[in-house]
Simulated scan of single mutants.
Amino acid sequence: MARSDRLLELIQFLRTRRHPVKGAQLADEFGVSLRTIYRDIQGLIAKGAPIDGEPGVGYVLRPGFTMPPLMFSTDEIEAIVLGSRMVARSADANLSKAALNAVAKIAAVLPVHRGAEIDAPGLHAGAIRATTQDSVDMAPIRSAIRMERKISISYCDEAGAPTERTIWPISLTFCATVRLLAAWCELRGGYRTFRTDRISAFADTAERYPRRRAVLIREWREIAGLPEPG
C-alpha cells in the first residue's frame, strides 16, 4: 500500500473508533512497523488532522473532522452512488430525493477527471420497488425515530384485525418487498415489528419516549439475536 493510501486508510480507521487506539494495534492493522505508524501519525497531525494521543497511550481522532470527497477511493464512490440510487428506487419520496441530492453534491466537488465515476459508473441499481404500498407518509415516521418520540398508530395484523397502539419507533428496515418498523409497543409491553403497509393511520403524540433510542436498539438487537451492524 502506498503511503498516501495508508494515511487515508489510517484516518478512516481512527474515525470509526471512539476510544484511543494504541500504535501497536495500528501497526498490526496496516502491516507496518510501529515506527512507521508513529511517523504517519505525526505526518497527519502536521497536515492538520485533529489527532490526540501519544506513544504508549493511543490515538483518537477528534469528532467533527471531515475530508473532501475528492479523497474518496473509486470503490467508495461506486458504493455511495450505487447505494444512493438503490435508495432512490425503493424509499419514500423525500428520502429518494435526498439520495439523489447527495450524489449531486458529491459530483459537484469531485475533480473534473473523476466525473465519469458518477456519470457513467460500472455499477447500476436495477428496478427495486416494494410489492406493497404504504398507506401513510414515511417521512414523519422517520422524523419521529430521529426525535425519539412516541406515535399512535392504527394497525391491522396478519389476520386483518384492527388495533390502536402507542409505540416507540426505533428502526425502519427496507426489505425487498416490505418495510418493517421496529418499536416498543405499549399495548404488548415488548418489542414488536410492524409492516408499514398495514399502518392505516398514525399521529405524533409530541411525547418523547422515556429511554434513549440507542439503548432501545441495543436491547432489541440482543433480544432478537441480531448481529451488530458492520
Rank of each mutant, 00 (worst) to 15 (best):
M1N: 03
A2Q: 04
A2F: 03
S4P: 02
S4F: 03
D5A: 14
L7Q: 09
L7I: 05
L10F: 09
I11A: 10
F13P: 03
L14P: 07
R15K: 14
R17W: 03
R18M: 10
P20L: 07
K22T: 01
G23Q: 15
A24N: 01
Q25W: 01
A27V: 00
D28R: 01
E29K: 05
E29T: 08
F30D: 00
F30N: 00
S33Y: 00
R35D: 08
I37S: 04
Y38D: 04
R39Y: 02
D40I: 00
Q42R: 11
Q42V: 07
G43D: 02
L44G: 09
K47N: 06
G48T: 13
I51N: 05
D52K: 04
D52A: 11
G53W: 03
E54A: 08
P55Y: 07
G56Y: 03
V60Y: 07
L61A: 01
R62T: 04
P63T: 05
P63K: 06
M67P: 03
P68T: 03
P69Q: 07
L70E: 15
M71Q: 10
F72A: 10
D75W: 02
E76H: 05
I77V: 15
E78Q: 11
L82N: 12
G83R: 13
S84I: 07
N94R: 11
A98W: 13
A99H: 06
L100E: 14
N101M: 08
N101H: 12
A102F: 14
A104S: 14
A107N: 07
V109P: 01
R114S: 01
G115T: 12
A120D: 14
A120T: 10
A120C: 10
G122R: 09
L123N: 02
A125V: 06
A127G: 06
I128S: 10
R129Q: 12
Q133R: 08
Q133G: 00
D134S: 12
V136A: 12
I141T: 05
I141A: 09
I141P: 11
R142K: 13
A144Q: 03
R146K: 12
S154Q: 15
S154E: 14
Y155N: 00
A159E: 11
A161S: 14
T163M: 05
T163G: 03
T166E: 15
I167G: 01
W168L: 02
W168F: 01
C175N: 13
A176W: 07
V178Y: 03
L180S: 12
L180M: 13
L180Q: 08
L181D: 01
A182W: 15
A183R: 05
A183S: 10
C185L: 03
Y191R: 06
F194D: 09
R195A: 12
D197M: 07
R198Y: 11
A203W: 12
D204M: 01
T205H: 05
T205C: 10
T205F: 07
T205N: 06
R208M: 13
Y209T: 08
A214H: 04
V215C: 04
L216H: 06
I217E: 14
E219H: 04
E219V: 00
E219L: 08
W220C: 10
W220P: 03
R221S: 02
E222M: 11
A224P: 05
L226F: 11
P227L: 12
E228D: 06
E228K: 03
